[in-house]
C-alpha cells in the first residue's frame, strides 16, 4: 500500500466527493418529486393516465442507466436539430445530462415503489376514511398518500443507496466524481488498488450516512409499525 500516493490524491477525492454528493442529492430529489404524481397516475383506474406511466417505468427499468446516459449525452448531440435548439446550452453540459439521466432513472424506480405502497394500503384505512365521509381526493391527500410514503421508506432507502453507486457512471461523461478521481489517480500513479480502494472507502462512508439518515426517518415516521414494547 502506497499511503503517500493516497495522501497526495486526497484533495481530488474530496472534490470528487462533493460532485458525487451533488449528483446524488439533485437526482434523488428531482426523481422523488416527479415520482409522487406519477405513482398516483400509475394507480389511476383511467387507462389514458396509467398506461403511459406504465410504459415509462417499463422502458426506463428495462434499460441500463449507462445506455440511457450515453443516449442523452453522446446520442442526442449527434443531431444538428438538437445542437441548434434552445435546449442545447443545457444538453451540452455534462452536469445537466448526468443529473437528468439519473433523475429519470430513479424516478421510474421510485414511481413503482410508491405505486406498490399505495396498492398495499390496508383496507381498514380506506374504509375508515370513507366512513368519516372523506371524498376520494381528501382521502388520498390525508390518508393514502401519507401512509404510502411512510411505508415506502425501507424500499426507498434501498433505491437511494443503489443510486449512490449508480452515480459512479458520471465519470464516463467527463465529470470528476469519486470514481473519476480514482481513475485520474490511477492514470497518474499506475496504482489501481490504492486508487479504487480510496474511492471505495469514500462510497462506504457516504452509504453509512445514507443508512443513518433513513434509520432516523424510519424511527420518526414508521414507529407506529414497530413492535410494541
Amino acid at each position: 500500500m502506497n499511503f503517500d500516493a493516497i495522501g497526495e490524491a486526497l484533495p481530488s477525492f474530496v472534490e470528487g466527493l462533493q460532485v458525487t454528493a451533488i449528483l446524488l442529492a439533485a437526482s434523488l430529489s428531482l426523481g422523488l418529486v416527479a415520482a409522487i404524481p406519477l405513482a398516483l397516475a400509475r394507480r389511476s383506474p383511467r387507462a389514458w393516465l396509467s398506461k403511459p406511466v406504465w410504459l415509462f417505468t417499463y422502458v426506463i427499468r428495462g434499460t441500463p442507466m449507462l445506455v440511457q446516459l450515453f443516449l442523452l449525452y453522446y446520442g442526442l448531440a449527434q443531431f444538428e436539430v438538437v445542437r441548434d435548439s434552445a435546449a442545447w446550452p443545457w444538453l451540452s453540459s455534462a452536469w445537466f445530462c448526468a443529473i437528468a439521466a439519473f433523475a429519470i432513472n430513479t424516478c421510474a424506480y421510485t414511481t413503482e415503489i410508491l405505486a406498490g405502497a399505495l396498492e398495499t394500503t390496508p383496507a381498514g384505512e380506506i374504509e375508515a376514511a370513507r366512513a368519516l365521509g372523506m371524498s376520494p381526493a381528501l382521502a388520498m391527500r390525508r390518508i393514502l398518500l401519507p401512509s404510502a410514503l411512510r411505508r415506502a421508506i425501507p424500499a426507498y432507502s434501498n433505491e437511494a443507496i443503489m443510486m449512490l453507486q449508480g452515480t459512479s457512471l458520471a465519470s464516463i461523461v467527463t465529470l470528476l466524481d469519486l470514481t473519476g478521481a480514482a481513475r485520474e489517480m490511477n492514470s497518474v500513479t499506475y496504482l489501481p488498488f490504492e486508487a479504487f480502494l480510496t474511492a471505495a472507502a469514500f462510497y462506504l462512508a457516504l452509504t453509512f450516512v445514507l443508512v443513518s439518515l433513513f434509520h432516523l426517518a424510519e424511527r420518526r415516521w414508521l414507529s407506529h409499525l414497530a413492535p410494541r414494547r
Partner: peptide, 18 residues
C-alpha cells in the same frame, strides 16, 4: 482540461461543440 477514456469520445464532443 476535459478528460475522456477514448479518443473517439473526444472527437464526438469536439464535433458537437462541447
Amino acid at each position: 482540461v476535459v478528460r475522456y477514456t477514448k479518443q473517439d469520445e473526444v472527437f464526438l464532443d469536439l464535433a458537437s461543440g462541447r
